[in-house]
Design a protein around this nucleic acid. Structure first.
Lengths: 150, 150
DNA sequence: GCAATTCCCTATTCACTAGATAGGGTATAC
DNA sequence: GTATACCCTATCTAGTGAATAGGGAATTGC
């Protein structure tokens, strides 16, 4: 199960990406619309800004806007930001590989081989699908007035 | 990342499944061979017995044997035993479905749709590959004298 | 029939993390 | 120059992973 933090991040990102780029979305608005604890959401949005995904404006009419375009941001990237490595075993992570401590021969490990198959399939989807893809698949219905929840 | 508990369970199961069915494997032997804390492993093996996967014999020459054949036990089944639902969202789990609390329309949730794709791919592998498959893929080398680790 | 062996059961500990909550600091627009 | 909204740091709580501890119960071999 993914964390609430990650789930909130996706909700906020999809909301921001789906809105018109001209005006920023305030964290308080997002929080209210999606029933996310405001202070908690603020921390998340700051993380997304530090990661170079969002930009922010302060003061009246301030809020958050996309910094990078939505079709360059994959689900995998966002998920890794909040969950750390997605791999089921440290020895399967490409981005933060770590050897299993008491492993003698990695290339012969049955567990690694089987989880490698599964993880490959999982990762392939998450790293290829972007926020823009997700919005496009929404059957064309713009649900700005609905809560896009999970 | 999967838990140590699950990892230990796989090691033990693969060891038992790979050994000759005639004689039981003692928990202490498995623990020593794979560097698993003995008392911790005992708990795991009892869980596997309660799940109907292993059988046990007490006393001298006692130990554990497979109850169900290795080609009927999928990685998914074992993983669920120790990790609970594998789905990234409660609303995606078939075996223990739970609605997301603040979700208005599940069928329109972008997050659910995208993670559904990824999870399908992941689950498909884990639920189809069995312990026997894993042992068969081991390039024919019987590594009873090696630690099969992860 | 008894002692060694091995499985079995329950409780406890310790560190770590998720998931917030709290409170104020800082920049900006009007 | 004040309201607005982002930003930063600290703290709290419940839950969980990963063991450790200690003894009880069944079985086998002698």
């Amino acid at each position: 199960m993914i964390s609430n933090k990650a789930k909130y991040a996706f909700r906020a990102l999809l909301a921001i990406a789906a809105s018109s780029d001209r005006q920023a979305m305030a964290s308080a608005d997002i929080a209210q619309r999606y029933a996310i604890p405001h202070k908690f959401l603020e921390q998340i949005l700051v993380d997304l800004k530090k990661a170079g995904i969002l930009d922010s404006r302060r003061g009246k009419n301030g809020g958050y806007v996309m910094l990078r375009p939505a079709d360059t941001i994959s689900f995998g990237e966002v998920l890794r930001l909040f969950e750390g490595p997605l791999a089921p075993l440290p020895c399967l992570s490409r981005q933060s590989y770590r050897r299993c401590e008491d492993c003698i021969d990695e290339s012969r490990c049955d567990i690694r081989r089987e989880f490698g198959r599964a993880y490959d399939a999982y990762r392939r989807v998450l790293d290829s699908r972007t926020l823009a893809d997700a919005l496009d698949s929404g059957h064309g219905q713009n649900d700005d007035f609905l809560r896009r929840s999970a």
